[in-house]
């Protein structure tokens, strides 16, 4: 099988607006993704392909990844000014045959972390996004287990079966160093180039971002003071909290209804 790692070519010096080949690299999150993909592939004997979208200078990160153990590299020759959905669409077409698609959860150049989700949506793959810990399976018979960060310090345990997009936070794994011989060989490795014309891009219509208005129910109370307090008082619990025990379907329905009632959804 083949597993893919998506690497974003960014300015490693932290200057987000400067594209200077000398200062470019890939983020800690992408480094962690590459490291975990290599660890998994070692145990499952999978092939690792690394993918980046960008100009010819971006091939440096692909060679770097090959020096560290990736087997093949593909550069999608595309203008990086495209939005995340378009870039994800292009990547999706290159990695559609892969069992797992590894990404950093978001890049350090103002990345929003949307590309992994877009890729999963494009390919109808399962998503395991924003992971903080990976248990690398001993062989291809066992699934990958992972921990996902939730609010309030909670963690969700995941088991990954079938085709999936995995995104991982930075600094969760230290990327291995390339061997000297590996670096020398990587300089000579051929890199596949996919041009944008080969990748059919469907640009979805975009419109300006306009947040939805939130309707808040009128406060109830006998006196005006009570009503004002109800809106402004922060010291007492306003209490949306309510404990119920329901089947998932009914629970979901209740949540949606409550959200609507509280004005979070129209």
């Amino acid at each position: 099988m083949t597993i893919a790692v998506c690497l974003k070519w960014i300015n490693a010096s932290g200057q987000t607006d400067v594209d200077d080949d000398r200062f470019m690299g890939f983020s800690y999150a992408d480094q962690a993704a590459l490291e975990y993909a290599l660890r998994v592939a070692e145990n499952t004997n999978d092939e690792v392909i690394v993918v980046t979208a960008g100009p010819v200078g971006a091939e440096a990160v692909l060679r770097d990844a090959i020096a560290r153990g990736a087997h093949r590299a593909v550069r999608i020759d595309i203008d990086r000014s495209h939005d995340s959905a378009t870039i994800a669409q292009a990547i999706a077409q290159v990695v559609a045959h892969c069992a797992l698609i590894w990404c950093g959860d978001y890049s350090s150049d103002r990345g929003s972390g949307s590309v992994p989700a877009f890729i999963a949506a494009e390919l109808s793959f399962a998503q395991a996004l924003g992971l903080v810990e990976i248990q690398v399976p001993a062989d291809s018979l066992h699934p990958i287990r992972a921990l996902r960060r939730l609010d309030g310090g909670r963690r969700e345990q995941l088991e990954i079966h079938g085709q999936a997009v995995i995104s991982i936070e930075g600094s969760t794994a230290r990327l291995r160093r390339a061997s000297l011989k590996g670096s020398m060989a990587a300089n000579k490795q051929a890199i596949d180039i996919v041009t944008v014309n080969q990748v059919a891009i469907e640009t979805p219509p975009t419109r300006a971002y306009r947040p939805r208005a939130r309707t808040i129910a009128a406060p109830v109370g006998s006196s005006a003071l009570d009503r004002v307090k109800q809106i402004t008082d922060t010291s007492s619990a306003k209490g949306h909290g309510e404990t119920v025990h329901l089947e998932p379907r009914e629970a979901a329905e209740l949540i949606v209804n409550k959200l609507r009632e509280w004005g979070y959804q129209s």
Binding site: R177, S179, L180, S183
Partner: peptide, 9 residues
């Protein structure tokens, strides 16, 4: 010798 793995040349 270098500081890379397998780093002798």
């Amino acid at each position: 010798t270098t500081d890379r793995p397998d780093g002798d040349l």
